[in-house]
């Protein structure tokens, strides 16, 4: 079986995987990083969103072996030295989560939205750009607010 090595949350991590092992399986089952969730099997819910080489992707739809050598950031790697990432802080401050299952993917997706669109995000942009992340608890209201606030707070970073 092939061995893959990635820099995950700043640390080099290796494991022997099958060709069919998905990135999310590598993270959850091989590395024990269970903050990245699986909510569907059709690449739609976005619960599994992580950053690969700085870009958000759905880790349920990528083969681990194809990402040998990549730098991966998961929800566990966002907070630095015990300080929450501004987007994490915004989700907490604005009550943008209830059950919390979609939340890691939402946060990872939101940070990528800021990378793509900048810090001043209007409501319409946020709603449209959250197309790939499904939440069942919040009606998205507080998520949209949190993403706007988090985006603004990231400006100081």
């Amino acid at each position: 079986m092939p061995v893959v090595t990635m820099t995950v949350n700043g640390e080099a991590r290796s494991a022997e995987v099958e060709g069919r092992t998905l990135l999310v399986e590598f993270l959850r089952n091989h590395l024990g990083l269970t903050g990245t969730h699986v909510g569907c099997d059709t690449t739609q819910c976005g619960c599994c969103t992580v950053h690969v080489n700085g870009v958000a992707i759905k880790s349920c739809t990528a083969l681990a072996v194809a990402l040998d050598g990549a730098a991966v950031t998961t929800i566990e790697g966002l907070a630095q030295n015990g300080k929450l990432h501004p987007m994490q802080e915004a989700f907490r401050e604005h009550h943008a989560l209830q059950c919390g299952f979609c939340t890691p993917g939402m946060i990872m997706s939101a940070i990528d939205m800021v990378r793509r669109n900048g810090h001043a995000l209007d409501e319409r942009t946020v709603r449209k750009q959250l197309e790939g992340n499904i939440c069942r608890c919040t009606g998205y209201h507080n998520i949209v607010t949190a993403v706007q606030a988090g985006a603004a707070a990231m400006k100081g970073q």
Binding site: T43, Q44, G46, T49, V55, A56, I57, K58, T61, A62, S109, D112, M113, R116, Q129, E131, G132, N133
Partner: peptide, 9 residues
Amino acid sequence: IGDPLVRNR
């Protein structure tokens, strides 16, 4: 196409 995360890949 798809959504932003799908378009990234």
